[in-house]
């Protein structure tokens, strides 16, 4: 079939009628000992590739992913907390958190530098802290107190005294954290980061902040 190959190359492959006629006559000429029907039978239902076939290498390897995609995570509800939680369960967590903060600030004492503690707390973890909403654009959030269970980019999930899991948006609220007499105000609107990203972020000093 090499001949046919070359010959068809001269014709443009789009003119299929011409190509068909050419093939027919070519077969007749080269296979005189066979009947026409015989040829027909041989060539029927057989793909005759006349166009140039791209012979590139298939290098696409199937990428083996170990982790889960965000969609899968959502579907599996990996981080989905149940709405009924008991506050008493998380008291040890709060103790652990207090210990951690004391460690972080080299022991809290009245004479330690508040600025230093501030900068440390900015990078610290708040899971397990007891927070109170002191100011909020939405008045019904004001005064809610609880232990932070989960901190995401936009919300705090806290468990209140009444053993309820409450979701509180960070935006437009000011939170207060108290440790050993140190009271820290956290401006939620400036805190809208994933808790893991916060440790790498540089906070800028600003004169005044509104909610």
């Amino acid at each position: 079939m090499a001949l046919a190959y070359i010959a068809t190359k001269e014709h443009s492959p789009q003119e299929s009628k011409q190509a068909k006629a050419f093939i027919d006559s070519f077969l007749k000429r080269s296979l005189h000992n066979l009947q026409e029907e015989e040829i027909q039978r041989h060539t029927d239902y057989k793909a005759v590739v006349l166009e140039h076939k791209y012979n590139g290498k298939k290098t696409q390897k199937k990428k083996k992913s170990k982790g889960l995609s965000a969609k899968q995570k959502r579907e599996m509800k990996l981080f989905h907390l149940k709405p009924e939680q008991q506050r008493s369960v998380f008291l040890p967590l709060n103790e652990l958190w207090k210990q951690y903060i004391r460690d972080l600030c080299n022991g809290l004492s009245p004479e330690s530098n508040p600025q230093m503690i501030q900068s440390k707390l900015l990078k610290a973890d708040f899971h397990g802290a007891i927070v109170t909403v002191t100011k909020s654009k939405c008045p019904s959030y004001v005064g809610t107190t609880g232990i932070i269970l989960q901190e995401t980019k936009h919300v705090f999930r806290i468990v209140t005294q009444h053993d309820r899991l409450k979701v509180i948006p960070k935006r437009n609220s000011v939170f207060t954290v108290e440790i050993d007499g140190f009271i820290t105000h956290v401006y939620g609107s400036k805190f809208q980061l994933k808790s893991s990203e916060r440790s790498a972020k540089k906070f800028k000093l600003k004169g005044t902040i509104d909610l």
Partner: peptide
């Protein structure tokens, strides 16, 4: 140090 402390805390938590 702060970051290591945080990792430590999270693991313990």
């Amino acid at each position: 140090k702060d970051a290591y402390l945080r990792l430590n805390f999270l693991y313990q938590a």
